[in-house]
Nucleic acid binder design. Structure first.
Lengths: 200, 200
DNA sequence: ACCTGAACACCGTTCAAGT
DNA sequence: ACCTGAACACCGTTCAAGT
């Protein structure tokens, strides 16, 4: 065995168990109370000390990122949705559906848009939420480029812009907007990014 | 004097002094630390007990609303800006400038967009921030209607929608977006609300 | 190596005691 | 009538003591 090689030791059984309990409890609390939920209460209900939570997940963002990754329901739903979307023939429709799928994912927990938006623009490259953000941004970029080469989206638009827009819509929604307002905003947005016919 | 008449007694001198000290200190703390700043620290630095702050301003929103109202600089600047804007001949330009003016006002304190957005959509009609929100919304409505009758803005748009949009931009900005992203989003938005020529 | 939970320094809020 | 500040119930975070 090479001396420089990383040793990936299998974690102790209780460590694995604790981590799973924390994730499971945190997920429930995030779903019920939003991203601002008490971490003390999470540790307590998981039957662990606050210190244990803190070492497993040094920041709220780290816990949030881990919970998001472990959330099978949402990830699978998103992947399934993405598969459906990729089947669509109309590149315009594809983009619209993808924006809705993102918006719904960002509404998984109330208040999730805030740390996501912060992570998307963070100076610190080690924000744990950067990973999901970057995935969403590059996926959006793919769809935007496809729609652009089909002539449906203005060339000045980037995937990043529409990621920010979808995040904003989710933010407005989590602040209690009604569906009519949201729909008008979505329409507003769509008319903004769609290619318009130049005046002759 | 009628028995049912409201007696508006002049407040005691120390009460007036305390209120002024709280507002002045709170303003400084909001400016420096954003809307989430410690209210305890505000009371302490104003030389008062936390209970005094709490009776003058029962919630953070109440304090925030009072500080906004007392912020001469910003209000005056906004009024002056509005006067300038009203002089413009182009109704399209007017609306665009107004949206920028709102956006800047919403950036007075970091994080101000959050309570404003909440207040704009609150069920509770007694949220103290509803007053500034309603002022902004109806002003936006006025500008939108003017632009619409000049044929510059789609008729499906309401002032409320563009208020939400300006609030979102300020929110994105307060999360550290760079100016290029913001500009692309503003352009995106403007192409969305502008009247487009129907295909022949 | 990992967990534990007491301890610390903070919050916002209340309320009995003062003036 | 208004102010005061101790008291309360919460935070998140750290770290010495355990296993």
């Amino acid at each position: 065995m090479n001396a420089g090689e990383q040793r990936v030791r299998k974690p102790r059984a209780d460590v694995q168990r604790n981590r799973a309990a924390l994730l499971e409890t945190a997920q429930r609390h995030f779903l019920r109370n939003g991203v601002g939920t008490s971490l003390d209460a999470v540790a307590r209900e998981a039957g662990l000390g606050p210190g244990t939570l803190y070492r497993h997940f040094p920041t709220r963002e780290a816990l949030l990122a881990a919970v998001l990754q472990s959330l099978q329901t949402c990830s699978e739903e998103l992947v399934a949705r993405q598969a459906e979307i990729d089947q669509l023939s109309d590149a315009d429709e594809v983009l619209e559906q993808w924006l809705r799928a993102m918006e719904e994912y960002f509404s998984t927990f109330s208040g999730l848009s805030d740390p996501l938006m912060a992570a998307a623009q963070a100076q610190a490259p080690d924000d744990p939420l950067r990973i999901p953000c970057d995935i969403f941004i590059s996926a959006t970029d793919k769809y935007v480029k496809a729609a652009q080469s089909a002539g449906h989206v203005r060339t000045s638009i980037r995937g990043y812009d529409l990621f920010l827009a979808a995040c904003s819509i989710a933010w407005i929604k989590s602040n209690g907007a009604n569906e009519q307002s949201l729909d008008r905003l979505r329409t507003l947005l769509a008319s903004g990014y769609r290619e318009r016919d130049e005046k002759a």
